[in-house]
Simulated scan of single mutants.
Amino acid sequence: MTATPRPNTPRTKAAQREATMAALITEGRRRFAHQGYADVGLADLVAAVGVTKGALYHHFGSKAGLFRAVVAQVQQEVADRVSAAAEHHPDDPWRQLVAGCEAFLAASADPDIQRIMLIDAPAVLGWHEWRAMDEAASGRLLVDVLTVLTGDGTLPAQPVPPLARLLSGAMNEAALWLAQSTGSADLAATTAALRRLLAGLRTHAGDPS
């Protein structure tokens, strides 16, 4: 008797693979955010998901590989929030810049995002890899809008890469400071300072909003 073909088996295996990876990333993200990378034990992590260490190593190679996937997810979420904020001003690149920077600062003020993206990621992945991942996500959006603004005269003509890195560094530092602050008005004050900083870059000073 001829066996009945099972055309859906590869798809089922692929779905199981994706489900396992998603579960490991979700649990890893929760633990990395609450405990910090160094204090996360793989035995407890995989037990919580219901898989073996071998499954984790198969999909991610190592604890650092899982963390890298978590960082990529977090950075993409931040980039999506920046992009969504900018899209509210489709015909005004200046307001796109301001709204995007404010969205980045607000997202980065989240303690879980701070711990994963700004505190542990540079130490675990190394500065160069972390910067490359950041530039591939929200950093690219910043470069794009600055290129438009220097091209249309809103900002003085200048090389964009150093300007983008200066702004990105300032916002990352502000987010780290907010992580240590206890004042309820600190985010609003930091956002106002960011608006003044951006307004000072314009060719002709105007409305900081």
Rank of each mutant, 00 (worst) to 15 (best):
F60K: 06
A64V: 15
A64L: 02
L66S: 03
F67T: 08
F67N: 10
R68L: 11
A69C: 01
A69N: 08
V71D: 04
Q73R: 15
Q75E: 13
D80T: 07
V82T: 11
A85K: 06
E87K: 12
P90T: 10
D91S: 12
P93Q: 12
P93S: 11
W94D: 08
L97M: 06
A99S: 14
A99E: 07
G100E: 00
C101V: 04
L105I: 00
P111S: 07
P111D: 09
R115N: 11
I116A: 09
M117V: 15
L125W: 01
G126L: 01
H128T: 12
R131H: 14
M133H: 10
M133S: 11
D134E: 15
D134M: 14
A136R: 13
A136P: 11
S138C: 11
R140L: 12
L141Y: 06
L141F: 06
V145H: 02
V145T: 02
L146W: 04
L146A: 07
L146S: 03
T147E: 09
L149W: 04
T150F: 05
G151N: 05
T154P: 13
L155R: 03
L155P: 10
P162D: 03
A164G: 08
S168G: 15
G169I: 06
A170S: 14
E173P: 01
A174R: 13
A174E: 13
